[in-house]
Every structure is written in structure tokens, then in C-alpha cells.
Lab assay of single mutants.
Amino acid sequence: TEEFVRLWREAVRHNQTLHWNGTDFIPGDEWAEEFARREEEKL
């Protein structure tokens, strides 16, 4: 979602874990980066 992408970019900028829907998205984590890339492509 647009909100997820916005929060993810913020988390990456501050190198912080994003807690989203009970899942931890960690900047630099391969799975999280791939998920975020797919979400961005949907926008």
C-alpha cells in the first residue's frame, strides 16, 4: 500500500525496523527489500 511504502522509506532512511501487520520489515533484509520493491511497483 501507499502507506506501507511511505513508512518503509522512512524506516530505511533512519535504518529502523518497520513493524507492519505483525511483521518486522528490516532495512537490508533481502525478503523485506523484495516485498517493498513489489509494493512500490504497484503504485
Rank of each mutant, 00 (worst) to 15 (best):
V12L: 09
F4I: 00
W31Y: 08
P27H: 02
T23A: 12
E40I: 15
T1H: 12
L43S: 05
N15L: 08
F25V: 01
E34H: 08
W8C: 13
H19R: 11
E30Q: 13
H19D: 04
L7E: 07
W31H: 06
L7K: 11
I26V: 12
E41K: 13
E39K: 08
Q16L: 14
R38Q: 13
N21H: 12
N21Y: 12
E10F: 04
E34Y: 06
R13Y: 13
H19P: 03
R6Q: 09
H14D: 12
E34P: 00
Q16V: 14
A36S: 03
I26H: 11
W31G: 05
D24T: 11
R9M: 08
R13P: 00
A32L: 04
E41M: 13
L43R: 05
D24P: 07
G28T: 03
E33L: 05
T17D: 02
E30W: 12
W20T: 02
E34Q: 11
E41P: 02
E41H: 11
E41R: 13
F4L: 02
R13F: 14
R13K: 15
R13H: 10
E3K: 07
E34W: 08
L43G: 05
E39M: 15
F25W: 04
L18P: 01
E2R: 13
E41A: 13
E39C: 15
R6Y: 13
R9H: 14
E39T: 15
R13Q: 14
F25R: 00
E2V: 11
E2T: 10
N21F: 12
L43H: 06
D24F: 10
D24I: 12
P27W: 02
E34V: 03
F4E: 00
W20R: 01
E3P: 01
G28P: 03
T23V: 15
E3G: 07
E40T: 11
E10L: 06
N15A: 08
L18D: 00
E39N: 09
E10A: 03
T1S: 14
K42M: 07
R37E: 07
I26K: 14
E33A: 06
L18I: 06
N21A: 11
H14F: 13
E34R: 08
L43T: 06
D29H: 09
